[in-house]
Simulated assay, not measured.
Amino acid sequence: MWLTLLYCCTGGGALLYVLYKWVIPHVVQYHPGLTLFWHDRIVERVLDTLTQSTRPQRMLAAVHNNATRGDPRSVVKAIDQFCRQKEWAMNIGDEKGCILDSVVSEVNPAMVLELGTYCGYSTVRIASQLPPHAKIITLEFNPQNAAVARQIIAWAGLGEKIKLIEGSSGDWIPKLKEQFGVDTFDLVFLDHWKDRYLPDTKLMEECGLLRKGSILLADNVICPGTPEYLEYIRNSPRYKSQYFKSHLEYTRVEDGLEKSIFLG
């Protein structure tokens, strides 16, 4: 009886492990709602409980263990490996990251605004390509995420190029000119709360932070999606927009980036 019970427990445990590690992740990676629910509501909470740490903290540990200090590309690579092999996270990811890289290279900006730092992955990607004396201001609402991002940015050796601000984008956007002597931004990367894309874009317009030729690059416009922002940006005579089809970070779910040129 005890031997039968042991076999049942062992077999059940093995089945659960296979489902958790391979079967469910493979199935959900093609479905937007299931992907986000599985990774953000199930896996993250289970691992937080088991490890008594947070996903950003685990990502930071992966950077410390696998990236070379002062080498931004090795930091990006370490995070991509962590997210593909260990645990999904809401960075822009390697596939869409290449699109981001190409836009930064094309614009060659002197002043960049990033809305939504998270753990600093895209911040590092952008800052590593900026010309000498160029700067990036990045805003993060969550202080725990900001604390991790500062350490990842420091590990990448990019602290001098990056100003990380904690707080609400709605509160900070009107203060950027006065607090940091900003005139306008050459490039704005939107990757924060999706319901803030549209109001923050209008706020930047009102505050005079966009000049003719300024580029807005918005992530996750399909998944989770920003329909109000897309409707505005694609129909406003003040913008010329282009959609770059891709996939939600580290999955096969359709997502993309919207690049919009401010026409004045």
Rank of each mutant, 00 (worst) to 15 (best):
Y229I: 03
D183N: 14
G167R: 04
P109W: 09
G11L: 10
P132N: 10
T49E: 05
A146Y: 08
S241N: 09
T49L: 15
V23C: 11
S236T: 07
D191E: 08
P132Y: 04
Y20K: 03
I233V: 15
P132K: 09
D219W: 01
K21D: 14
P25C: 03
R41C: 08
W155P: 09
G159Q: 09
I24M: 01
I79T: 03
L217Y: 03
S105H: 13
R41N: 10
V107K: 05
P131C: 13
F189L: 11
R125Q: 15
R55F: 01
E114C: 13
N145S: 14
Y239A: 06
R73K: 14
Y250N: 00
W22K: 09
G167I: 01
Y229D: 07
L257H: 07
Q144E: 15
T201N: 11
T68H: 07
T51G: 02
S246D: 00
V46M: 02
G159N: 08
G208V: 02
L164S: 08
T184P: 09
A78K: 01
H133P: 00
K163C: 15
I165W: 11
T226Y: 06
L190W: 01
Y121K: 02
W38C: 00
R69G: 02
K96Y: 01
N66Y: 12
K194F: 06
K194E: 12
N235C: 10
S214D: 09
W193I: 03
N220R: 06
L217H: 02
H26S: 14
Y17C: 12
A147V: 04
I153G: 05
C119A: 08
T226A: 15
R84C: 12
L248M: 02
I173M: 09
I92V: 15
M1A: 14
A156Q: 05
T201L: 14
H26K: 10
E231Y: 10
V46E: 06
H192Y: 04
P109S: 09
N65E: 15
L115D: 06
E140G: 08
S260Q: 05
L203D: 11
G12S: 08
K161R: 15
A149M: 10
N220H: 04
R196I: 08
Y239W: 07
I162R: 10
L3R: 13
Y243A: 08
F37M: 10
V27R: 00
L210M: 13
D255N: 06
K212F: 06
L263D: 10
T10N: 09
L263M: 14
K135L: 11
R234C: 14
L130S: 05
Q85N: 15
G116T: 04
Y118R: 12
Q81A: 10
G167T: 00
L130N: 05
R150C: 13
